[in-house]
């Protein structure tokens, strides 16, 4: 334990140094350093989200899906019934006007996530910055979260995997979903693989709590709709261009 304490002290030292820095020159740091330092814990100062403009989403284009699966090492194995899909392209057709919409659907990173409420062990959790994740170390694979998710966002791993990517551990018998590219966010990158891959810029990633962020500005201007808003889950992923 001694060594952990040493480690903790060193970490606290760095953290307090960073804090001192903040208090000495708040004006400079707060504006330029948007993301956290690598050894700082995430805080509820941020809430990460996505805004998807369905008008800009091309039918048939799956660039976001491919980029996500490339980024996180998700490969085709036993077919669409059992393979993981962290993000999928959904085609919507209006029942009366037959108007067609296209959009990617992934974990909506709810502020009130049903998956977190139902998880018996607490493996499903929401990080301070609003990202909903699965702690696969304590996931027992009961799939109750999959029953509870209104967006079918989660996948169960149906077979033994190998050669998982270092930043995206995944394994047989546990449940997983879109992580909002949490490894990128922790590195301070202000984007996700899907956002970056979209050829039309239909996706905007950003901090919903920062009124100056691009995503907040776009939301303020045109609004954004939650999927299944009646459930009042306060999703972190919003959609534009869906008329009722």
């Amino acid at each position: 334990m001694k060594y952990i304490d040493q480690y903790r002290r060193r970490f606290l030292g760095t953290a307090s140094a960073a804090f001192t820095g903040l208090s000495i020159a708040p004006g400079i740091l707060l504006q330029t350093v948007h993301a956290k330092a690598v050894d700082e814990a995430v805080t509820s100062q941020y809430r990460w989200g996505l805004l998807i403009d369905t008008n800009l989403c091309d039918p048939g284009c799956t660039d976001c899906v491919e980029a996500c699966h490339q980024e996180n090492g998700i490969r085709e194995i036993h077919g669409p019934e059992t393979d993981a899909q962290w993000i999928r392209k959904v085609t919507l057709k209006h029942k009366k006007t037959e108007h067609i919409l296209n959009m990617p659907v992934m974990c909506q990173h709810c502020a009130e996530p049903p998956c977190v409420d139902v998880c018996p062990t607490g493996a499903s959790f929401k990080r301070a910055d609003g990202i909903v994740l699965v702690d696969k170390h304590i996931c027992i694979g009961c799939r109750y979260c999959m029953m509870a998710c209104p967006y079918k966002a989660r996948s169960f791993i149906h077979e033994k995997l190998s050669d998982q990517l270092p930043h995206a551990p995944r394994g047989k018998g546990t449940v997983e979903a879109c992580t909002l590219c949490v490894h990128r966010i922790d590195r301070g990158e202000n984007t996700t693989a899907c956002t970056q891959a979209c050829p039309n810029g239909a996706m905007t990633f950003g901090d919903l709590k920062d009124p100056q962020s691009q995503i907040s500005k776009k939301l303020a201007e045109h609004g954004g709709r939650e999927l299944r808003a009646k459930l009042k889950l306060d999703t972190g992923v919003r959609y534009q261009g869906i008329s009722s």
Binding site: M1, Y3, I4, Y7, F11, K36, V38, D39, E40, A41, V42, F125, R127, A128, D129, L133, D135, H137, V182, H183, I185, D186, R187
Partner: peptide, 22 residues
Amino acid sequence: EHMNLLLHKRDQTMYDGIRTKR
């Protein structure tokens, strides 16, 4: 101590997003 170091780091990474190399 490797298991304790790893466990401590595991939870830091998982819950606090601290991805330092040590």
